[in-house]
């Protein structure tokens, strides 16, 4: 299968778009007509052919455009990529994991040749052919984590495991749902989740942490998370909140279908072998409401979810002010028919 990469932007003229294939494989996150937090973990061992779950690291039509956007964000603000000194070994772990996975899963796009410590990495879509010495930082243009995550879609947090907790000690974070790596780096699992309402009281984080601490080599896990974003912005960072926050007020009933996007994060978790750290890739998928409602089940269900979600969550996810307009728009696509269980289109 050859992927046709889109020429598109996630800023300025927002030419981002999903092909029909991308719409059909969109990871719709609601398995029923309502939403509440849960520790919705499952093993990340493949999935239906062609789905975003099939490969360890999904590569899709947005790959090149996302990598361009990442490079722009980093040029503006290098603090989006940071690694505390003890995390270099984990960075090599991640580089190896991504290079091995991508070269096995997409042999037409990526190649990895290894002779002892002498490695050669070929990334065809990005036109990269790099020979380097594994575990020798001086042989790469960036540190190992930065090098490989400039070539991989989604954000990456590397979590050190110690004292029965996980510590956000390294990351590449340019497509985040309103949190700052520069601020959160060094925090433990409960601290970086501190601003999330309700979930602490529900015991969600205690259960999630217990699960994550026990993820083992060879047994990665995954879950979905979601929020809403006006305009197809990848970089909804707190750093730039004063630039994108105001865009939320530009929504009108006429432009809503085009401008309002559902933002879904495919979160995966892999134990890293050499460092015993955990890598937490957060892959962001965007879909415009007008594309989403082309799948009738999704249109009906999203209407019901957004209509009934508690105010506290609507506030935390940043759409409380626009909610009436969103629900009004979506109600056109909800005929009240019953929806089938599960996330897949009928």
């Amino acid at each position: 299968m050859t992927i046709q990469f889109n020429d598109e932007t996630f800023r300025d003229d927002y030419s981002f778009h999903n092909s029909d294939r991308a719409i059909q494989r969109f990871p719709f996150p609601f398995h029923e007509d309502s939403y509440m937090y849960s520790v919705n973990m499952e093993r990340h061992k493949g999935g239906p052919e062609g789905s975003v779950y099939e490969m360890r690291f999904d590569v899709d039509e947005h790959y090149l455009a996302e990598m361009k956007d990442r490079a722009m964000v980093l040029a503006e603000d290098p603090l989006r990529c940071q690694s505390l000194p003890h995390m270099t070994l984990a960075g090599w772990d991640l580089l190896e994991l991504i290079m091995v996975s991508k070269s096995e899963d997409y042999p037409d796009l990526f190649e990895l040749h290894r002779e002892g410590s002498n490695w050669r990495w070929i990334n065809r879509p990005m036109g990269i052919d790099q020979s380097f010495v594994f575990m020798d930082e001086a042989s790469l243009p960036y540190g190992p984590m930065e090098y490989i995550t400039r070539q991989a879609q989604g954000d990456f947090c590397i979590l050190d495991q110690r004292d029965d907790n996980l510590w956000m000690d390294a990351g590449m974070v340019t497509t985040q749902a309103d949190w700052s790596l520069d601020f959160d780096i060094g925090m433990n699992f409960f601290e970086w989740h501190a601003p999330v309402p309700k979930a602490h009281e529900m015991g969600i984080f205690v259960r999630a942490l217990k699960f994550l601490l026990n993820i083992q080599q060879g047994s990665p896990a995954r879950r979905l998370n979601w929020t809403l974003t006006v305009n197809p912005l990848l970089d909804t960072s707190p750093e730039n909140y004063h630039k994108w926050g105001v865009q939320k007020t530009t929504l009108t009933p006429e432009n809503l279908g085009r401008k309002q996007h559902l933002r879904v994060e495919l979160q995966t978790f892999f134990r890293l072998p050499r460092s015993n750290a955990l890598v937490f890739p957060i892959r962001c998928y965007l879909i415009a409401f007008e594309d989403l409602v082309s799948v009738p089940k999704w249109g009906r269900r999203l209407h019901r979810v957004l209509r009934d979600i508690p105010d506290e969550l609507a506030t935390y996810k940043g759409f409380i002010d626009n909610r009436p307009m969103l629900v009004d728009y979506l109600s056109q696509y909800d005929d009240g028919a019953e929806t089938s269980p599960g996330v897949w289109p009928d």
Binding site: P238, Y241, G245, V246, K248, T249
Partner: peptide
């Protein structure tokens, strides 16, 4: 953390 108070308005 300090965040712009009038970002959306």
């Amino acid at each position: 953390q300090g965040v712009r108070v009038d970002a959306e308005d």
